[in-house]
Design a binder for these strands. Structure first.
Lengths: 185, 185
DNA sequence: TCCAACATGTAATTAGTTACATGATTAG
DNA sequence: CTAATCATGTAACTAATTACATGTTGGA
């Protein structure tokens, strides 16, 4: 009998399965797609991705087929299997472990009190600019999206994007809070 | 001549220096302090902390003195050196690298479209509860804090806490957004 | 002709987690 | 007497980054 429990996957594995659930692709494709919009929240180098794909294949969650591509080597086109879909199902509905979100910026904030105020202001202003830019990118993506139904793959994009917007708005608000405090001295 | 550039430190190194800048402590102390409020944003096991402390000592950023503690072994009390303070200065005012914040929840969100709506709702509700609890913890800490001046160590606590509040509020808003979308079907 | 994009892989290193190991003191 | 806390360390492993390596095709 087949095991009832689907195989657990790593966070990167979940990201890759999430991409392949929308359609097959090569390792190279996946590496590029680890940009907008999954890549807003997860990144990986191709070296890590190729390794993870091999592991997912060994677990039977994806299947690779050789195709001849433009490069010097054979290219492999990966597709998700039904076991992979089951594993992805389990992955998305399992509450994430309750560890603190790692934020280097928060670690810096914790020691901001001993920084030179001008240097602190410059750093925070740069962070602010970056998040304002991010918000503009998100707005672009959002404009092409509308309000997809929950069963539509686009709903996943919208949900991830929404999280990005709320997070970036929070960061801008935080920067303003710090800048005001530095103003007051 | 002494080098003009202070030694770069890792994120964990920055967190530990940030704690030691407020006063000396043993590895055990630091492990416990990697809870509120730095630990809201960075966590580490003692195994990693002890190793990092050794590295910081080799770089001359901290200094350890043997004291006899309650345990079976000699205890070491660590203090930050002036080189350590310089390195921490540089650490806090260097804009963090522009990599995406890793969010497993966002990766899950990206594939939420193929989840069973009831399972999705349960997951999101649990995440929401967790962040509401976090907000209550933050409010507690905040109440004891007031509005410290920028040169006061407490200002670091306040800044980190502020980031936590804004982040958690964003997460609750995100959960509500998803729950509403699931309601509408 | 040179550079970018295509396309895949390995090697070396650093960061982080989990598990193993020890042994004293104190509170219930 | 038992469990928790004190207090430190190592070992084994997984995750992630950086660097090394190869070789084609298409456009400026």
């Amino acid at each position: 009998m087949p095991s009832a429990e689907p195989l657990p996957v790593s966070d990167l594995g979940g990201a890759l399965l999430g991409l392949l659930a929308r359609g097959p692709g090569t390792g190279y494709d996946l590496t590029r797609q680890m940009h907008r919009p999954v890549g807003y929240f997860w990144s990986a180098q191709h070296s890590q991705i190729y390794g993870e794909l091999t592991r997912l294949e060994q677990d039977g969650l994806i299947r690779g087929r050789d195709v001849d591509g433009a490069g010097p080597r054979q290219s492999r086109r990966w597709s998700i299997t039904s076991a992979g879909r089951r594993a992805l199902h389990a992955f998305v509905t399992t509450p994430p472990p309750d560890r603190p979100t790692r934020s280097r910026l928060a670690v810096q904030a914790y020691s901001l009190w001993l920084a030179d105020p001008d240097a602190a202001r410059a750093m925070v202003q740069q962070v602010r600019r970056r998040h304002v830019e991010l918000l503009a990118d998100y707005a672009h993506e959002d404009a092409e999206l509308g309000s997809p139904a929950v069963g539509d793959p686009e709903f996943g994009n919208a949900a991830a994007l929404r999280m990005g917007v709320l997070g970036a708005e929070g960061m801008v608000a935080w920067c303003d809070w710090v800048l005001e405090a530095l103003e007051r001295g």
